[in-house]
Amino acid sequence: MKIHHLNCGTDCPIGGALFDGRSLGPLGRIVCHCLLIETRAHGLVLVDTGYGLRDVAHPHEHPQPRITLPWRMMLNIRLHERDTAIRQVEALGYRASDVRHIIATHLDFDHAGGLEDFPQAKVHVMQREYDDATGPREGIVARNRWRTRQLNDVAQWRRYGASGEPWFGFDAVRDLDGLPPDILLVPLPGHTWGHAGVAVRRKDGWLLHAGDAYFYRGEMRGARRRCTPGLRAYQRLMEVDVTSRLDNQARLRRLSVERRDEITVTCTHDPVELERCQSGCPL
């Protein structure tokens, strides 16, 4: 399988290095790292979609905006059609219909905005995430993070329970409908209750896209957690359970250290991790 590392959306929050750990100016840079996987027998597989065409064209339609004003202002979201997953798929010479599967780490607005751009794809997600995203939403974070306008036109949901076979000490959901056993869901609750990572077996070992289980490169591959103040605060704002989030993050950190030769762990929003994955450099 060949894996392309795409940036399907950019946020530029005020605070610079207080968010991304490296910007010299007042604005930071936070990416939406998605995977495009080429398989021989199963077509193209996307892991998350970032922002989509309708987000770019109509981000604040009333009465139910696709992305709400408080989150657009807080994150200083930059919406460009060229960054959408569909346009990047087309730039590689493919069509939307070639994407037969989308695996969602979760359904937050910055991960699920492009689902509708691939109407023929099966969308794989944890059952709890689907229930929380499409059901009644209480609280300001829940009402802002899950946007029904991004989900209404998705026709082919595939939903999974949390139990499964072990994968390096984590539960895993194998045998995703229509997908090879080399791609599996790894439940990682805390950011949302239905949040999951996506593990992909490559020739040289496993790649684990951990979604929003962590946000900053310093939270992995070291004995101690390091995170910028801005991203530390944003993770606290968006979490549903601090204990589950930090426990799973600590387990991932141990995995990234103890199994470094076997497993590459990356997340959604760190630009340095994305750049290293795109260049083939080790994380």
Rank of each mutant, 00 (worst) to 15 (best):
276 R>S: 08
280 G>M: 05
241 D>Y: 01
272 V>G: 02
251 R>N: 06
259 R>L: 08
273 E>N: 10
280 G>Y: 03
249 Q>I: 11
275 E>N: 14
281 C>N: 10
249 Q>Y: 08
249 Q>P: 07
282 P>K: 09
274 L>W: 00
261 D>H: 10
273 E>Y: 03
282 P>N: 09
276 R>M: 10
269 H>G: 02
255 L>M: 06
283 L>P: 05
254 R>W: 09
280 G>S: 11
244 S>G: 06
270 D>V: 07
243 T>A: 13
240 V>N: 06
274 L>M: 02
244 S>E: 10
259 R>F: 05
251 R>S: 04
262 E>N: 12
251 R>P: 01
282 P>T: 10
236 R>K: 14
235 Q>G: 14
244 S>T: 06
247 D>M: 11
272 V>M: 06
272 V>D: 01
241 D>P: 00
271 P>V: 04
280 G>N: 09
238 M>S: 05
238 M>R: 02
276 R>T: 07
234 Y>N: 05
256 S>D: 02
247 D>Y: 09
279 S>V: 04
264 T>G: 07
269 H>P: 01
250 A>L: 14
236 R>T: 13
236 R>E: 13
262 E>G: 08
266 T>C: 15
278 Q>Y: 08
281 C>I: 09
247 D>G: 11
270 D>T: 10
273 E>W: 04
255 L>Q: 01
251 R>A: 06
281 C>T: 10
243 T>R: 12
263 I>A: 06
244 S>N: 09
247 D>W: 07
261 D>E: 11
238 M>H: 04
283 L>N: 11
261 D>N: 11
261 D>I: 05
250 A>T: 14
240 V>M: 10
248 N>E: 05
244 S>K: 12
255 L>P: 00
259 R>K: 13
253 R>P: 01
240 V>W: 04
255 L>C: 03
261 D>S: 12
250 A>S: 15
277 C>L: 15
235 Q>V: 11
241 D>T: 03
263 I>Y: 03
275 E>G: 14
282 P>H: 10
270 D>Y: 03
245 R>I: 07
266 T>H: 05
254 R>N: 11
263 I>D: 02
253 R>K: 07
259 R>Y: 06
276 R>I: 04
265 V>G: 00
283 L>M: 14
274 L>E: 00
